[in-house]
Amino acid sequence: MSQSYLSRIGSKLFILLIFGFITLPVFMVIWISFFKNQLIVFPPKGYSTHWYMQLADQGNFAMAFFFSLEVSLLAMIISLVLGLLSSLAITHYEFRGKQTLQTFLLSPLVVPAIITGIAIYIFLFKSENWLGFNLVPSFWSLTFAHVIITLPWTVRLISAGLQGVNRSLEEAAVDLGASKLQTFWYVIMPSIRPSLVAAGIFAFIFSFNNLEISLMLVSPRQTTLPIEILNYVFWKVDPFIAAVSTVQIIVIAGLMLIADRFVGLSKVF
């Protein structure tokens, strides 16, 4: 009995350790963002919130933040629509090349993002030569590239949601006179709403955090927040950048919490 008690304590401790190990950098960043001095030394010479005050003054960070927001929201909406349509096709119809389509839609999950990024860049660059006008850098190219990496997430989450809808519910609706569209609207939609919310949030997060793909597609005037942060830390590392990161962490963590409320996050992975 004491044996099992000990092993329970042991496993709890183990989980706590791993949890601490994973989240340590995040807490470090938040801690550092409150350091008083520009030079990061331990222990800190004192604490202040003045780095946060500077956020508003640094125009390029604010601009990058809103640019990121725009790209991510648009990428989210596009990948939700495409994800919903392809998931409906995958779960409701048998057609040739279905397996291939599924693999194709999910493949960006397997390929390292930097490779996808380079591939997209080369593709756009070649297309430029052929078309005769600029594709890189542009807002639309960047959004299109982000859709490629967010689409696998929306497809996965939405098809999981659709698979959870009992087919006899749809048949019951049709049997009672509903058209395909009415069945979708009155029966399927309410059942997959949580998956849609989660898919949207995930698409947003993956786009908002993306570095590798944006890297080659941004211009100095139109930069995403992660790139702006990267640029900054090339030159110096100070509590200011920690404050920027903290804001980003809070946005993402908030969205994660919402996603978790709608669908257990464990369902996603």
């Binding site: 009992n166 006899s168 519910l169 048949e171 019951a172 609706a173 009155y186 029966v187 059942s191």
Partner: peptide
């Protein structure tokens, strides 16, 4: 339906 298929 056998499982009633009521809309939940």
């Amino acid at each position: 339906f056998q499982n009633y298929a009521l809309f939940p």
